[in-house]
């Protein structure tokens, strides 16, 4: 009896796959945060950073990259929330967004109150370009590149390149990432490894951006509400909208300035009064 030659073993490349179901419904819990966008950002940042102890980061090159993702996500969430908030409370933003297209299913999923979220489906705010574009189209908000916000956004862009490399290629920098990070081209590919000081710096960059954006957008919005006479000069009439505006922007965590909206309104009264007495251009 001749022995047959064994056939090619196609299963001898790696271990076989397992059967797994794709039910993650237990992981999807109701969001409970009621903080304003900037305070929600602070909360996320704090929680992420607590996981980034120096010894943990030193022993795991992956951890720093993952935590970077966590920090940038927090900044992205801030932008989504602030845009949504503005669409909800600012008539000027609503007017600009009136012609935006959204998927039909967004109405059922988000509800009428948060229908604006449909505009941002599939959009990433992990990059200065999209932040600038949406700020312009939806809010008519722009800024000079060399101003505080311009520089903060530029720094955030650099961080987003680190995040991009972390998410898509285990920290390996693409040519575009390397150029943006001013890493000189070398024969060996460069990989991002985030240690404690750099993770802290990334958090600082994200924080500076959110703060600069938050305070500048608030100022620009108030100025527009005054010039467009959305603020009438009567606290009784302006109370609801101005209180909503302060609730959206004013940080309770930072606690700088008066907490009550009417104190802030009083400080604006002379400016509002001056505008009201001028005929609209």
């Amino acid at each position: 009896m001749s022995s047959a030659r064994p056939g090619f073993r196609w299963d001898a490349i790696n271990e076989s796959p397992d059967t797994v179901d794709d039910d993650f419904s237990a992981c999807c819990v109701q969001s409970t945060s009621s903080a304003c966008p900037i305070d929600a950002f602070y909360e996320n940042t704090g929680e992420v950073l607590k996981l980034g102890l120096p010894q943990n980061l030193a022993s795991s090159p992956t951890l720093g990259r993952l935590l970077t993702l966590g920090l940038v996500t927090g900044a992205e969430a801030y932008f989504r929330s602030i845009f949504l908030g503005m669409l909800r409370i600012c008539p000027l933003a609503r007017e600009r967004a009136a012609d935006q297209m959204i998927p039909l299913g967004a109405l059922e999923y988000y509800g009428a109150d948060k229908i604006g979220m449909g505009i941002f489906e599939g959009i990433s705010f992990a990059g200065g370009l999209e932040v600038k574009k949406r700020s312009g189209t939806l809010l008519n908000f722009s800024w000079p590149a060399t101003g505080s916000l311009g520089v903060a956004l530029s720094n955030f862009d650099a961080v987003c390149h680190i995040r991009h490399a972390s998410v898509h290629s285990q920290g390996m920098l693409s040519r575009g990432n390397a150029r943006a990070l001013r890493v000189p081209p070398t024969a060996a590919a460069s990989q991002v490894v985030i240690d404690f000081p750099h993770l802290q710096k990334i958090a600082l960059i994200c924080t500076s951006l959110v703060r600069a954006y938050n305070s500048d957008l608030f100022k620009v919005t108030v100025d527009k509400w005054i010039s467009e006479k959305i603020l009438t000069g009567s606290w009784a009439d302006d109370r609801k909208s101005f209180t909503e505006l302060c609730a959206l922007f004013v940080s309770r965590v930072d606690a700088v300035g008066p907490r009550a909206a009417n104190y802030r309104y009083k400080a604006l009264a002379p400016k509002i009064g001056k505008r009201i007495s001028r005929p609209k251009a």
């Binding site: 602070y42 909360e43 940042t45 704090g46 929680e47 950073l49 607590k50 102890l53 802290q200 710096k201 958090a203 600082l204 965590v253």
Partner: peptide, 8 residues
Amino acid sequence: QFCMKCGR
């Protein structure tokens, strides 16, 4: 740059 206890 941030407190490792309270995150501020």
